[in-house]
Design a protein around this nucleic acid. Structure first.
Lengths: 162, 162
DNA sequence: GCTCAGCAATTGATTGCTCAGTAATTGATC
DNA sequence: GATCAATTACTGAGCAATCAATTGCTGAGC
């Protein structure tokens, strides 16, 4: 068609490059995995993946609440996004806001009893999907390296400025 | 606080489990990486990461257009999402719709010359970020295993029904 | 002790997706 | 050939995020 177009050839070479392909694989795998988990959680527990991630952080420590700021940082969301996310979770009876005594700008969040109950059911669903599509497909001795690599990537992103 | 609550303890154990942690790492790494690339592309080329992914597929083959359906499947988007995405790309002068001669339900998409030009600039930005936060942090001989594992995960997701 | 730069949360406007429903087209089956 | 289930793109409505602007609070420096 436009095979005579030199820019088209150059673009084609770039589009077929190794780097582009490999990175696409990461994004696609993560996106699809997240989508699987999201629909499974929605169907079986009535919450989406984002709320599940919040519940993980709320339940992690039995005697310490989490600030909305910390949630935003950890979930890669803006503060505005977290505000409305917690709004919905309060409305659903999964979480509760508690004013911070140490810093009155800050709002702490804790899970309700129902939130913990839903979380416990959700963890099973989550484990089933993750086991099947994340753990099983990867050869056993590659798994440790995989998580190690992810850890390094994460560290680089945290430290890198630009 | 509610350390005497047995459900809280159970939830805490689940929230701190290995599986939950490892999977969270994958999602977080992918999300942050995508975000870095998105903002870099926005600032330096005026397109977001999604349009970049479209351009990859449009430029890959110099003499074959891609159907919107194929784009939707490959980008993990719904057909409605792609319709509006291509609307915006046409408006921005990056892509063009071409009716399919083989199947009149189908709409093919091809890059404009400007689309290819933007793509060529974007590839450099993309390469810079991916190199820094995806390739460099991972030990060299783990990199092949990493992409191999991602490939297996992707395959499992493609074949798995539930 | 006052001031002021900086941070936490909230809110209105906007973006970009999904979902559900529709119309046109296709291809397999009778 | 006619019928009909499946498939493609498109559209209105709704949702969940972002961004930008605002309010209230904090803590460092004078």
């Amino acid at each position: 068609m436009d095979a005579a177009n030199p820019r088209a050839d150059q673009a084609a070479r770039a589009a077929n490059s190794r780097l582009v392909h490999d990175f696409g694989l990461l994004i696609k795998a993560a996106t699809r995995l997240e989508q699987r988990i999201d629909t499974a959680l929605r169907q079986e527990c009535g919450i989406g993946h984002t709320m599940f991630e919040v519940l993980i952080r709320l339940c992690r420590d039995t005697d310490e609440q989490v600030s909305q700021r910390a949630l935003a940082d950890d979930l890669t969301l803006t503060s505005g996004g977290v505000t409305r996310l917690i709004d919905r979770m309060e409305e659903a009876g999964l979480a509760r806001r508690v004013p911070s005594r140490a810093d009155r700008r800050s709002v702490l969040v804790e899970p309700t009893d129902q939130g913990r109950a839903v979380f416990l059911r959700a963890v099973d669903v989550h484990a089933r999907v993750v086991e099947r599509y994340f753990v099983t497909p990867v050869p056993h001795d590659d798994y440790t390296r995989l998580t190690g690599s992810l850890h390094e990537i994460h560290r680089a992103l945290r430290d890198g400025t630009d």
